[in-house]
C-alpha cells in the first residue's frame, strides 16, 4: 500500500480568489482518487489555512443565500469535515485577525466525525514536513 501524504496550504482569502477555493475542492477530491489508482494506493491530504487564508472560514456565511448566490466557504469546510479531510487552521493567524475558535464551522449535525482543528503554526509545519508534496495556493 502506497500512501502519499500531501499538504494543501491556503494563504489567500477565498472570496474572489479562485485558486484558494480550488485548493479546497482539489483536496476534497481525494475521496474519489482511488478509482484512478492501483489497489491500496491512497492520497491523504491535509488542508492548511495560514496567513490571510484564515479569513472567510467563519460560520454563518450568507454568500449562498440572497447575498451573492455563490457557494460559501463555510459549506466547503463543512463538506471537508464530512469526507474526513484533515483541516488545520493556524491559531496565531486567527488571533492576529481577531477570529475566535468558536466561530469555526463544523458538520457535526450532518454526521461528520472530523472537526476543524485550530492549531499552532508549529503543528502545521510538522504536517507539511510529513507530506511528500506541498501545494501552495
Amino acid at each position: 500500500m502506497a500512501e502519499v501524504k500531501c499538504a494543501f496550504v491556503v494563504q489567500k482569502p477565498q472570496y474572489k480568489g479562485e485558486t484558494s477555493r480550488l485548493a479546497i475542492t482539489h483536496a476534497i477530491s481525494y475521496q474519489t482518487v482511488e478509482i484512478l489508482l492501483e489497489d491500496d494506493d491512497t492520497v491523504t491530504p491535509a488542508l492548511c489555512f495560514i496567513g490571510e487564508g484564515v479569513l472567510g472560514l467563519e460560520k454563518g456565511q450568507q454568500a449562498a443565500k440572497d447575498v451573492y448566490g455563490i457557494s460559501s466557504t463555510e459549506s466547503h469546510i463543512m463538506n471537508s469535515c464530512l469526507v474526513d479531510l484533515e483541516v488545520l487552521v493556524c491559531k496565531e493567524d486567527m488571533e492576529k485577525y481577531g477570529i475566535s475558535e468558536d466561530s469555526m464551522p463544523d458538520a457535526e449535525e450532518m454526521g461528520a466525525d472530523v472537526k476543524v482543528q485550530v492549531v499552532p503554526m508549529a503543528d502545521i509545519k510538522k504536517r507539511i514536513d510529513e507530506s511528500r508534496h506541498v501545494l501552495v495556493f
Binding site: 502506497a2 502519499v4 500531501c6 482539489h26 477530491s29 481525494y30 484512478l36 492520497v43 491530504p45
Partner: peptide, 8 residues
C-alpha cells in the same frame, strides 16, 4: 481527482 492521481 485526475490531478491527485498524478500527484500520487
Amino acid at each position: 481527482h485526475w490531478f491527485l492521481a498524478r500527484v500520487h
